[in-house]
Design a binder for these strands. Structure first.
Lengths: 341, 341
DNA sequence: GTTAGCACTCGACTAATTAGAGTGCTAACA
DNA sequence: TGTTAGCACTCTAATTAGTCGAGTGCTAAC
């Protein structure tokens, strides 16, 4: 059996209707809903076929049909093709350029959630080029030294070091020069033990400081390992009865709170090299445990070269994919553009 | 009518039982539960009195009684007196000393939630002595200047400034000296317009940089205004049917997600000068909208002099106050001690 | 002051009934 | 051959009625 034009139209009608109502869709509804002018009986025959093909399901004998994961998948794939161009032109600037990155991203998550009425997540960009750019030691207090470490991509780390013995200005200057000449432009892998001991030797009695600074450097460079994820719109889960029962909701909320559980999503998304920008996970396709009853739509944005992050929407399988995709593309574009100037 | 010893014992028994079961408590249950050796009929009479006094409520005619807010209040007040000493000795070290404050506090929230099975919040400490300690400008890139600003209490703010024209090392040094001599040791209020324009004049063509730095200083000092709050254990709301219906849960979760809504709690807590450390809000006493059906227990910790924060537990009115208070005191002590050494 | 006893109330639960939406199948029609 | 009308059947959701039991208030006796 084949999926011809008419079958697809009926499937589309079923899905559309189900997205709106959340109720199983009957043959009579479709008979009126579409412009095919077919009787409910004919629709019934077609629906039986669609069920056999695996695109729709019957929750119980005398109920209407609901889309299966496979059905959603077909629908989404076709929709994506169609909508590809549509978003191009619409570029409003909703995001104000916040000075602080984390504010900006929190804001973005909030906006996504508000616009779509689903739950939203935004991951902070991960840096992948991590070379040391600059180190500076300054005396802040009688026995406190501030070490500022700047990594490529302008990630900044501050560490306060406490020293026992007072250090003269000249010594501090020397240490600064020592550190910068040895370490600037290097990545974590390039800083080896030999280099470290050489530096320590040159630092003499101040080798402790050198060791402390190097620790801080290591931490600054690998700082991106703990991935920041912002979420918003948790309460939207309650809008969809199929997600709102205690057990499911509890699981979803936990996953959303323990943001690290969402990192799979980010990894999965960033790993996919040749992705067109938007990724859709339906039901069991999800990489996140505990979201098997949901659909997840994600997009990758790129702030600066190599600084990629993920934005995503989590909602019921009957989510309004078109709206969601539109919103994600919009935000993606905005984020992409934000630091281009 | 007076609340005598026997009435209080009955009230206590009602509350204890209700805390456990979450079901209205009947007279017969109390008759067996207590060691008063009274028949259910007598208890009934006493219960009628307690209801008249406002300590207990009857959800409907033929149900048992549940404690009113006033009843909980009495119970908590008495309990607090009794337990005051008990916690003193128990000091385990559960918290590993994390190097990063935000990790530590997130961890703390998680621990609280896990131990109590209620929802937990932890606010980052707010600094109140905000004098400028140190400013440093350094060249990082050909046209990028890093401004590091250190405020008393070792709060550090970094800002990257982009300059059009190259700046020589001497100029940078001069600017550094200029800024430090003028601004060090001053609070936000003490930096006035006259001083700023004087500095700008001295800076000559580099007055733009001075302006930028001063903006950054202002921001660094008032940075504590956007209060960080960490939460955990949202899902625990579902453990208590009286909080778990859709409407209530949705509201609670929103409040918990929009952490700023919890700031009232922190403000309220920190404002109360002569508090003994633990504060209990029962039902309508809460300062947080949307938590009227909950009880909230908070404690104030003090990391370093003047660096105060709030920890708190949010749960149903029938929460296990004793356990909660114990846990909060424990964590409070740990946090208090943490930076004492 | 305490207790036993009794009539009464009211929610929770169960079972039975009903209404309605939807199906599959068959036979007739174009 | 594809389409449609019609009908018997199925299953759920909602309603109703009935029962159970926990708990109360009140009265009268101890």
């Amino acid at each position: 059996m084949q999926l011809d034009e008419r079958k697809y139209k009926i499937l589309q009608a079923i899905i559309r209707n189900y997205l709106e109502t959340g109720e199983p869709v009957g043959s009579r509804t479709i008979s009126k809903y579409t412009d095919l002018n077919l009787s409910s009986a004919t629709i019934r025959n077609e629906m039986a076929d669609l069920e056999e093909l695996g695109y729709i399901l019957q929750p119980h004998t005398s109920a209407g049909r609901i889309p299966s994961d496979q059905g959603y998948r077909l629908y989404v794939d076709k929709m994506m093709e169609e909508k590809e161009r549509e978003v191009e032109e619409m570029k409003e600037t909703l995001l104000e350029k916040e000075d602080k990155m984390d504010h900006l991203l929190k804001q973005a998550a909030k906006m996504l959630a508000a616009n779509t009425e689903y739950a939203a997540m935004v991951s902070a960009p991960q840096y992948h080029r991590n070379k040391l750019k600059f180190i500076q030691l300054s005396r802040v207090d009688i026995n406190q030294i501030l070490a500022v470490i700047v990594v490529e991509g302008n990630v900044i780390k501050n560490t306060m070091l406490t020293v026992k013995d007072e250090i003269s200005d000249e010594t501090l200057l020397k240490l600064n020069i020592l550190l910068n000449t040895h370490l600037n432009g290097l990545s974590l892998e390039e800083i080896n033990l030999g280099m470290i001991s050489a530096m320590k030797q040159q630092a003499g009695i101040h080798s402790v400081i050198v060791a402390d600074v190097i620790d801080a450097v290591a931490e600054a460079i690998k700082a991106d390992e703990d991935l920041e994820i912002y979420t918003s719109g948790t309460k939207n889960f309650f809008k969809y009865p199929e997600l709102a029962d205690h057990e499911r909701a509890s699981e979803l909320i936990t996953t959303f709170e323990e943001k690290q559980l969402l990192s799979e999503l980010v990894q999965d998304n960033l790993a996919d090299e040749n992705n067109t920008g938007i990724q859709v996970y339906i039901g069991n396709e999800t990489p996140v445990q505990g979201m098997r009853d949901c659909s997840i739509v994600t997009a990758t944005y790129e702030l600066d070269e190599g600084m990629k992050g993920t934005i995503g929407i989590i909602g019921p399988k009957r989510m309004d994919y078109e709206k969601v995709v539109k919103n994600l593309k919009l935000l993606k574009n905005q984020l992409d553009d934000l630091y281009k100037k």
